[in-house]
Simulated assay, not measured.
Amino acid sequence: MTKHQIYTMSFARVHPCYVTKAEKKGRTKTEVDEIISWLTGYSQKEIEAQLEKQIDCETFFAEAPQLNPSRDLIKGVVCGVRVEDVEEPTMREIRYLDKLIEELAKGKSMEKILRV
């Protein structure tokens, strides 16, 4: 079975798409990176280092310092897929991030997005 294209895509290529989506709705890159940090455990410096290294998405999530244990509270549909039903672990992490960025773009407060 071949890997999904997103797995081999550089996270540095995907990150600007998240930022653009957020900024179009009046949100910021800082908020996008805060969400990424919450989900993965990467610090801001570590996120920037991963972007500079052009690491692929699969490795970005595989090397995440500490995936947030509250991430299983993320529910809903993104890209036509119910995130809680995604069985493949890496794809589920990618969909979690997609869902959080979508919530940001829809104007949810950071408290609600980060399940505080």
Rank of each mutant, 00 (worst) to 15 (best):
K53H: 11
V81F: 02
Y42M: 10
V86D: 00
R27S: 05
I55A: 09
K53N: 14
R13S: 12
L51H: 00
T28W: 09
D56F: 03
E52H: 05
C79V: 12
K29V: 14
S43I: 06
L73A: 14
K21D: 05
E48Y: 03
G107K: 02
I113S: 00
S37T: 12
K29N: 09
C57K: 05
G76Q: 02
K99C: 04
V116D: 12
R115I: 14
P16C: 04
E87L: 12
K53P: 01
R13W: 09
Q5K: 15
Q44M: 10
L97A: 08
L73M: 12
G41S: 04
G41R: 02
V86G: 04
L114T: 03
T8K: 11
E31L: 06
P16G: 05
E52V: 12
I36W: 02
E103P: 00
F11N: 03
E103K: 11
T90M: 10
A64C: 04
P69L: 04
C79P: 03
W38I: 06
S109Y: 01
M1Q: 14
Q54G: 15
E46Y: 00
I101L: 05
E88R: 05
A12V: 08
Y18N: 13
T8Y: 09
N68H: 07
Q50K: 13
I94P: 00
D56P: 01
R115G: 14
Q66M: 11
K29W: 06
D33F: 12
E31C: 08
T2E: 15
T8W: 08
P65A: 07
R115M: 14
C79I: 10
K106M: 13
T28Y: 08
E52C: 05
K21M: 09
Y18M: 11
L104E: 01
E84G: 09
I47S: 01
R71P: 02
S109Q: 06
L51P: 00
G80A: 03
R92K: 10
T2M: 14
K29M: 11
S70T: 09
Q5P: 13
T30I: 09
D85K: 10
A49G: 05
D98R: 07
K108S: 04
V81M: 08
E111A: 12
I35P: 01
C57W: 05
W38A: 07
D33P: 03
Y18P: 04
L104M: 03
F60H: 03
R13D: 15
K45E: 15
I74Q: 01
M1A: 15
E93W: 06
I101T: 04
E84D: 12
Q50D: 07
L104G: 02
F60W: 09
A62Q: 14
V86N: 06
T8N: 15
Q44W: 03
D72F: 08
R115P: 02
Q66E: 12
H15L: 08
L67R: 05
D56W: 03
E87Q: 15
I94N: 04
V116N: 13
T2P: 11
L97D: 00
F61W: 08
A12D: 12
D85M: 08
G80L: 01
R71Q: 11
I35Y: 01
K25R: 12
M1Y: 11
C79A: 14
R115H: 13
S37Q: 07
L114P: 01
